[in-house]
Design a protein around this nucleic acid. Sequence first.
RNA 1: UUGGCAGGACGAUCUGUCGCGGUCCUUUUGGGCCGAGGAAAGUCCGCACAGGACAGGGCACCCGUCUGUGGAAAGCACAGUGGGGAGUAAUCUUCAAAUAGCGUAACAGAAAAUAACCGCCGGAGUUUUUUAUUUUUUUCUCCGGUAAGGGUGAAAACGCGGGGUAAGAGCCCACGACGUUGUAUGGCGACAUGCCGCGGGUACGCUACCGGGCCUGCAAGACCAAAUAUACCGGCAGCCGAGGGCUGCCCGCCUGAUGCCGGGGGGUAGGUUGCGCCAGAUAAAUGACAGAUUCAAAAACAGAAAGCGGCUUACGGCCCUGCCAAGCUU
RNA 2: CGGGAUGUGGCGCAGUUGGUAGCGCAUCUGGUUUGGGACCAGAGGGUCGCAAGUUCGAGUCUUGUCAUCCCGA
Length: 115
Amino acid sequence: MDASLPKQERLCGKTAVAALFEHGKSFQSGCLRCKYLRRESSDAARIIISVPKRNFKRAVKRNLLKRRIRESYRRQKALVAPGMDILFIYTLREVLPYEAIYADMTKALESLGNE
RNA sequence: UUGGCAGGACGAUCUGUCGCGGUCCUUUUGGGCCGAGGAAAGUCCGCACAGGACAGGGCACCCGUCUGUGGAAAGCACAGUGGGGAGUAAUCUUCAAAUAGCGUAACAGAAAAUAACCGCCGGAGUUUUUUAUUUUUUUCUCCGGUAAGGGUGAAAACGCGGGGUAAGAGCCCACGACGUUGUAUGGCGACAUGCCGCGGGUACGCUACCGGGCCUGCAAGACCAAAUAUACCGGCAGCCGAGGGCUGCCCGCCUGAUGCCGGGGGGUAGGUUGCGCCAGAUAAAUGACAGAUUCAAAAACAGAAAGCGGCUUACGGCCCUGCCAAGCUU
RNA sequence: CGGGAUGUGGCGCAGUUGGUAGCGCAUCUGGUUUGGGACCAGAGGGUCGCAAGUUCGAGUCUUGUCAUCCCGA
């Protein structure tokens, strides 16, 4: 199973992010809030991760959460259909351990597959 | 041994699986090497760099303020000088020049800075006693002298003793404290010590004085440059109807002057550079899991976005050196 | 990344030259009313964000620090 996460599978650029925020649909799954948009393309899915500065003032905690979310997505990216742009926002005010984030990511990707 | 003070060093290492950024080699898979901190933080000072402004000078505004050395400079470092404070001590901490002018000092208190409210003393008048008058004593008023004493207050006009005086006063004297001209010695210097002389109201703030400072900041700035609209230039078509709308196409109807093509400047998205030649991106890289080691679950504070010199703040634990206090042993 | 502002009773705010920390609403008590509201009288409630410094004395002055909000690009 390919568990890598190269740059082509990460969402970059102002216009793409703006389009996702403007037109995407969203739902809540545990500590994560997902926002997604289906593109007219068969490329691999692209993701972007966000941890609000309002909830975590120190950059160390924000980086730690972003790495845990990215790691849990990387392990389970086979569940996602191609052509999706996905945004993950961490909405809690406390730092959760890796196992909890991994479980929430599983639920999020499963419900994304049912859409 | 316990407690403390000061200084310094460190801020995990290794193995496996998966994964990320850069670079090099192959270029189809892959492989080698490098990959966060002592504070990367706060953005409190300074520098360099970049753009803008600018003949020269002044005012205003802002910052600094004991001395020496280092330094590009710094609200910088090191060493020192003189006061104040904390601690039994080791030690730590805080402040700072000189002269002149101006201002403030609530409440309390007579008075808060050219000091006479009470008191003390002298003189004149008046009154009382004795009375022939003066002297003495007493009451009150006026004039003058006087900083020894007066609940206060943060602060009360050098301290203490003696002389002196009507009463007093550095008014005079001895000792002492403070400031200061001169001088000698020591020190690069701030300054210290001694001698001679002089002086006498405290604290704080502001101004003058001395030194420094143009403004804005890497999202600064430089370059390349889609789509769309378009200054300008050229060509073609055009009131004998181009083009547009009803409408996906034709006819028809309505509208009625610009339309098409090419070049091209500025410039947006985006990119390159600034930017690091052993970290270096441009939505932004160091992580996840398992195990070993040292007493120990590797845990504290914390994540580079242009660079450098400092400051400040946060921080678990361990080690080394010197010193202080107390107790015990020899 | 750069620039600016504000922290004072439960809430919203004053507090100029340092000198007893105040106002409105709210709370409590009493009065008025058959009762309530409104009104009248009175009372309680403050580490002035935090920590140092200057000063006889700091909400105010100086320095550090924490939090919140706003602006430019």
